[in-house]
Simulated assay, not measured.
Amino acid sequence: MGVKLGLREERRPRVFENRVLRRIFEPKRDEVMGDWRKLHNEELHNLYSSPDIIRMMKSRRMR
């Protein structure tokens, strides 16, 4: 029995999680241009090894 979340219910917590992770891991200097840039979502999740927030929400709703 899977727990269904709507797109809006999934998007908002994911955006919040990414915003918090960007603050924790700070901007990165671009190797080619030398400018500062925000980390991409995939880079954030590679740095942060915990399961994503949507998976956590679904597992807690099943209890």
Rank of each mutant, 00 (worst) to 15 (best):
M1T: 08
M1P: 01
M1I: 13
M1Y: 09
M1H: 07
G2Y: 09
V3E: 07
V3M: 07
K4L: 12
K4T: 15
G6D: 09
L7K: 15
L7S: 13
R8T: 06
R8Y: 02
R8S: 13
R8M: 04
R8C: 06
E9H: 04
E10D: 00
E10F: 00
E10I: 08
R11V: 02
P13Q: 03
P13H: 04
P13Y: 11
R14Y: 07
V15N: 10
V15Y: 09
V15R: 12
V15S: 08
F16N: 05
E17V: 03
N18S: 07
N18T: 02
R19T: 13
V20C: 10
V20A: 03
V20Y: 05
L21C: 01
L21T: 00
L21D: 02
R23I: 12
R23V: 10
I24Y: 09
I24A: 00
I24R: 06
F25T: 04
F25D: 00
E26Y: 04
E26S: 08
E26W: 08
E26D: 03
P27L: 04
P27F: 00
D30G: 02
D30K: 02
E31F: 06
E31L: 10
E31N: 09
V32S: 02
V32N: 01
V32G: 00
M33Q: 11
M33R: 12
M33I: 09
G34A: 08
G34M: 03
D35S: 04
D35H: 08
D35T: 12
R37C: 04
R37D: 01
L39M: 10
H40Y: 08
H40K: 15
N41H: 08
E42N: 09
E42A: 10
E42T: 11
E42K: 12
E43R: 01
L44G: 00
L44W: 01
L44M: 05
L44A: 05
H45C: 00
H45W: 13
N46E: 14
N46R: 15
N46Y: 12
N46M: 14
L47Q: 11
Y48E: 10
S49I: 15
S49Q: 15
S50Q: 14
S50A: 15
P51Q: 10
P51G: 05
D52H: 11
D52R: 12
D52A: 07
I53G: 01
I53C: 03
I54Q: 07
I54R: 00
R55C: 05
R55A: 14
M56G: 01
M56D: 10
M57N: 02
M57E: 01
S59A: 13
R60F: 09
R60G: 02
R60I: 10
R60W: 12
R61K: 13
R61S: 05
M62L: 14
M62R: 14
R63A: 07
R63T: 12
